[in-house]
């Protein structure tokens, strides 16, 4: 066999490349999140710390925010917004309440996942407080009011008149314990 050491070198570099590409597959996971966050493609809402001075000069535009609620199949809960939609002024904080009820005879932990459409609006949908930030525990038969505090950014592009904020609740604890 010719050039044994050259063969070894080529082989090792190809094996290294293979391992690298395996890692690249995993690197796609954070890359995908970053990409979606930067472009707002995924409808992921933005989180802000509320600042008092932001509230002082709301724009004179009005946009409609609709509230939508979904329950993933495994979760024995009902979820609905207290009001279906409100008119908001960009640059001002508002509160909305969802009513959640546990139909099950046991404690269940759920997690809400938000989504905003149209997806361009998601970059300008700021939340300072949300029940979706943490897991929620509901005791057997319990009903709770859950709060979300949000602001639509003043830079919201022209033409967006209508924003839908949608929540889907998923079950976190797998069984009834």
């Amino acid at each position: 066999m010719r050039n044994k050491s050259k063969i070894k070198r080529t082989t090792l570099s190809l094996v290294f490349f293979t391992v690298l590409m395996f890692g690249f597959g995993y690197a796609l996971v954070p890359l995908y999140d970053v990409f979606c966050k930067l472009t707002g493609i995924n409808g992921k809402t933005q989180r802000v710390v509320e600042l008092e001075n932001q509230q002082s000069h709301p724009s004179d535009r009005w946009v409609k925010v609709r509230f939508d609620a979904n329950i993933n199949g495994d979760l024995p809960w009902t979820l609905k917004p207290k009001v279906r939609n409100i008119k908001v002024q960009p640059g001002k904080f508002y509160e909305a309440t969802y009513i959640v009820h546990n139909n099950f005879s046991g404690d269940v932990v759920g997690q809400a996942v938000p989504s905003v459409s149209p997806s361009v609006a998601s970059l300008y949908f700021m939340k300072s407080e949300c029940f979706c930030f943490v897991n929620q525990l509901l005791k057997a038969g319990e009903t709770q009011e859950m709060l979300v505090r949000f602001e639509v950014d003043k830079d919201l592009p022209e033409g967006v008149e209508d924003i839908t904020l949608s929540y889907t609740f998923f079950r976190v604890n797998p069984d009834n314990s």
Partner: peptide, 11 residues
């Protein structure tokens, strides 16, 4: 093959 199959393996 060496560039794409490892990504599938990861997936």
């Amino acid at each position: 093959l060496v560039a794409s199959l490892p990504v599938l393996a990861g997936g």
